[in-house]
């Protein structure tokens, strides 16, 4: 499993090894991807995990890392999902799933919860996405289909609020269409807000002059360029 982590890229662990192609295996599972992302969360961060796949990241954060989870419905210090007798209808996460509280937890109302986001106090958030563009534009709230019911929740506030916005997604849709694109065709959630995209096939830095691929799994950089239809820079 250690080869999953050649691409550890937290600011306090700078990568000096260049882009790593892992060609001896297939793409990452979502659990493995969650583990890779967890390794990149800086020690002591205040972290918000989006609904869906990103919640898996919490399972891979060692307690000694001191990461404090924020949930936008009004809590810092959120613990794991509740089970059995622990279930309390008054204590849920943003996905309305019952959760637990850790020692040192705090509760606050919604305006405060989003003020701490918008005010730049939240270090990192990890969101799912329909599409991310090379310039860091994010589309994750609305398919834009005429019969779709729009529902934004806190996605737009998180996208512009957290200091570092990471995306966790599969690189290709079920029909094989790339989700990392030159420009988003889905309605935008935020403009130029994403810094890094973690996918089953690779990790990409976006928002700069070119998209930089830090690591790949089960596919070469050259093949990725072809499937994504865009040039990729590698880590020097």
């Amino acid at each position: 499993m250690t080869d999953l982590f050649h691409a550890g890229t937290a600011e306090d662990h700078p990568v000096e090894t260049g882009t790593v192609e892992h060609l001896d295996r297939g793409p990452l599972t979502m659990d493995e991807l969650a583990e890779v992302i967890a390794r990149d969360i800086p020690e002591g961060s205040f972290l918000n995990l989006g609904i869906g796949q990103p919640t898996k990241i919490a399972d891979h954060l060692p307690a000694e890392l001191g990461v404090i989870l924020h949930t936008e419905n009004g809590m810092l210090g959120m613990g794991p999902a509740a089970d059995g007798d622990q279930i309390d209808p008054d204590l849920t996460n943003a996905g309305k799933v019952p959760v637990t509280e850790l020692p040192g937890a705090s509760y606050f109302h919604h305006a405060d919860s989003f003020a701490m986001m918008r005010g730049g106090h939240l270090d990192v958030c990890v969101l799912g996405a329909y599409q991310v563009a090379a310039n860091g534009d994010l589309a994750n709230w609305h398919t834009g289909k005429p019969d779709a019911i729009p529902a934004v929740g806190g996605a737009m506030d998180l996208a512009i609020g957290a200091k570092d916005v990471l995306v966790m997604m599969t690189l290709f849709g079920k029909d094989g269409t790339p989700k990392l694109v030159r420009s988003c065709s889905y309605p935008l959630t935020g403009v130029g807000c994403v810094s890094r995209v973690y996918t089953d096939h690779g990790i990409f830095e976006v928002g700069g002059e070119s998209v930089v691929v830090r690591a790949t799994w089960g596919i070469s950089v050259a093949d990725l360029e072809e499937r994504l239809g865009m040039p990729l820079a590698t880590v020097a």
């Binding site: 936008e72 109302h109 919604h110 305006a111 919860s113 989003f114 003020a115 986001m117 918008r118 729009p150 529902a151 934004v152 929740g153 806190g154 996605a155 737009m156 506030d157 609020g161």
Partner: peptide
């Protein structure tokens, strides 16, 4: 549809 933080603020 109002973004959640805007709704609160």
């Amino acid at each position: 549809v109002v973004p959640q933080g805007n709704l609160a603020e």
